[in-house]
Design a protein around this nucleic acid. Structure first.
Length: 662
DNA sequence: GTGTTTACTTTTTTT
DNA sequence: AAGTAAACAC
């Protein structure tokens, strides 16, 4: 591998400077992924053992991609190379050391749904009236408090009791939330310096991708484990996760905390035409808080950016589908060369319909995940309980699903007991059965007793030996889950069948995972830990000749020859809620728009509807103010396509005529 | 006490 | 459009 010919001078510097602190500011499309992979390959080639390298990313997708690229490049097995997300790395540490903090090894990880449920329960327990509680807000607040972004103030202090209860219950249930996956390792390092030392000894070279998206806590975490060789790569203009605690000021902190750090700027864009880049630069230059940089491209000016103003979202989707067919012919492209980007998930629906009607193959990433489906959640909840029966949130989920005659009253009884004894529901059930006389238990608590015994039996089965997939199939039989589905969806057999298939898919994916040689330690715990972090785009491979539909957030790091950005309207981007929350500050939304623009290589279409269906009514829309920030000479406008409207009218008449005829 | 129907809200982005 | 909670029915 001759790297000197494949890289520009700045890239080369970034790849070869492997000792010390390095800050790489990598503009959009400047070959960042290339640099990272070359850099790691370079480290390996210069004799640094895999086990000393730790590469941290934000998404599983990014981690996977990095790994395959390095594999291709070095043609080696990468068994000891640690490439993972921050959260997954946190889990890895906690699996090993959490007992030092008072949890047990079989801890559960609570996702957003579990977290919300627990907060709700805590609020109810403390007699907060439900309608005053906004679970989403509380959930966000708790994260901010835990992450040290916010402190209690006049408006929030009244919720502190819920927060304390929440924290206590997490520990009681032997569970942690996403925030804890970063926080607890930090705590561990503080209380057990010998562990920190061990980690520092092991990972002598650390790389962080998308550094602008690190939260304050993640930064502290890094600072703790980084010895002297740390390389962070980021772009402040692409910081789009501040709502999750991301803080691009970390870039500045890095410069102060590592005063000897070398800063490398990658400013040549290899991705986009000059037109697209000029548009993006024009937009982002309106942001005040940013590191000065000048991205340039030598790819030629290309075609102008086209802006369409369709009458409504239906026409918008129709237009995009049409355009894909035309452009594919004219430019001789594959379907996978097209990306449709949207600000919010629900905008996807109409687009999906249009592509479906036009027979265009597509792939959606984002939206509700496979693991968010009710039937899948049910199965996983069972597994979670077998792993950790003290997990009350998941116990409540399955205690009467499928129905086993344990209703409201029974649950009240065990909840009260659990409260009184300060124990978990599982323990309360046990106590109730044991303390009541044989006969009484037999009659009154028979269902509870059966349930309790069922859990213990299954625990034994699932915690011993191999073959989780098979066991799950058996479990489904035993609890008669399919009968339950049929009964539950008796009005719509199709739905039941789809859910049935989903479970089969889940079982197959478990099977594949278990039998994959790359899976080191296949057991129930490792499986559960893995899938809670997986969520969104699980193992689906895109790029099989399918148009990609994604949210802008999900599109980060990707590129497409032709990009459509749909719904470029005021209140969507910048999103009304975001603007409201940030006190009128639109800089993050502008960065988001910037990310969207810079995904395009050759051609860019923006669409902005005049009307849009929202819930049940139709609302008027106006174009996003960001459109005006694009230098006007780069843009061609298209008036609404009247023909389609007339077509629609003709269509309507045709339908009416048909009605009269029948 | 349990199961079913009805009324009602709701999520911007994701590890 | 779907998921939840409260009201209602058994």
């Amino acid at each position: 591998m001759d790297i000197t010919h494949e890289l520009n001078p700045e890239q080369l510097k970034a790849v070869t400077k492997i000792d010390g602190a390095v800050l790489i500011i990598a503009g959009a499309g400047s070959g960042k992924t290339r640099v990272i992979t070359f850099r790691i390959a370079n480290m390996l080639n210069s004799g640094i053992p895999q086990s000393q390298i730790l590469a941290l990313t934000f998404t599983n997708k990014a981690a996977r991609e990095m790994e395959t690229r390095i594999k291709e490049m070095t043609a080696r097995k990468l068994q000891n190379l640690s490439i993972s997300t921050f959260h997954a790395f946190g889990v890895k540490l906690l699996r090993k050391y959490i007992h030092l903090l008072g949890w047990r090894e079989n801890f559960s990880i609570y996702d957003e749904t579990d977290k919300g449920q627990l907060i709700k329960d805590c609020g109810r327990e403390l007699k907060f009236s439900d309608d005053n509680l906004n679970i989403y807000e509380l959930s966000a607040l708790f994260s901010q408090i835990k992450g040290g972004v916010k402190d209690w103030d006049k408006t929030t202090i009244s919720y502190k009791t819920i927060f304390d209860e929440y924290q206590n219950n997490l520990k009681l249930y032997n569970a942690v939330d996403f925030d804890d996956l970063i926080l607890l390792p930090i705590k561990l390092f503080q209380t057990h310096p010998e562990v920190l030392n061990e980690i520092k000894q092991q990972y002598k070279y650390i790389m962080v991708d998308e550094f602008q998206d690190t939260s304050l806590q993640q930064y502290y975490f890094l600072k703790k484990i980084a010895d002297k060789n740390i390389c962070v790569v980021g772009d402040d203009d692409q910081s789009i996760y501040s709502w999750r605690g991301a803080n691009y000021e970390n870039i500045k902190m890095f410069e102060t905390d590592f005063p000897n750090c070398i800063e490398i700027k990658l400013e040549q864009n290899y991705r986009s035409t000059e037109t697209i880049l000029a548009a993006a630069n024009g937009v982002i230059s309106h942001n005040k808080m940013r590191k000065e940089k000048s991205l340039w491209s030598s790819n030629g000016s290309g075609k102008p950016i086209e802006i369409y103003i369709p009458v409504d979202d239906k026409e918008e989707a129709h237009f995009i589908a049409d355009k894909i067919l035309v452009e594919r012919q004219e430019l001789n492209l594959k379907y996978s060369d097209f990306g449709i980007l949207v600000r919010t998930n629900h905008l996807i629906r109409t687009l999906e319909e249009a592509l479906l009607n036009a027979n265009i193959p597509y792939h959606i990433s984002g939206g509700s995940s496979f693991f968010d489906r009710k039937e899948i959640k049910d199965v996983i909840s069972y597994l979670r309980i077998f792993a950790n029966p003290d997990d009350d949130i998941n116990l409540l989920r399955i205690i009467n699903t499928p129905r086993r005659g344990i209703g409201k009253r029974s649950i009240e009884i065990i909840s009260e007991l659990a409260n009184k004894e300060k124990c978990t529901l599982y323990f309360a059930i046990k106590k109730l059965i044991l303390s009541s006389g044989e006969l009484e238990a037999e009659k009154k608590y028979n269902e509870l007793k059966l349930f309790f015994e069922f859990i213990n039996e299954q625990r034994k089965i699932f915690l011993s030996g191999k073959g989780i997939a098979k066991k799950v199939r058996k479990l489904m039989d035993e609890i008669k889950y399919f009968d339950y589905l049929l009964q539950e969806y008796s009005k719509n057999e199709k739905v039941a069948r789809v859910k049935f298939m989903n479970i089969e898919r889940l079982i197959q994916s478990i099977d594949e995972w278990e039998n994959n040689p790359d899976t080191l330690d296949a057991n129930l715990f490792t499986y559960l830990n893995r899938i809670t972090l997986l969520s969104r785009d699980d193992g689906e491979e895109p790029d099989k000749g399918e148009v990609q539909i994604l949210t802008i957030h999900a599109a980060k790091g990707l590129e497409f020859p032709v990009v459509f950005i749909a719904g470029v309207e005021d209140h969507i981007i910048p999103h009304a809620r975001s603007v409201e929350e940030n006190g009128g500050n639109v800089e993050e939304e502008r960065r988001l728009f910037y990310v969207a623009l810079t995904r395009a290589q050759q051609k860019l279409f923006l669409t902005s509807c005049q009307h849009r269906r929202h819930l049940k009514d139709i609302i008027e829309c106006s174009p996003s103010p960001f459109i005006q920030e694009i230098p006007s000479e780069l843009v061609t406008y298209h008036e609404p396509v009247i023909q389609t409207s007339q077509e629609q009218i003709a269509d309507m008449f045709a339908k009416i005529r048909q009605k009269f005829n029948t």
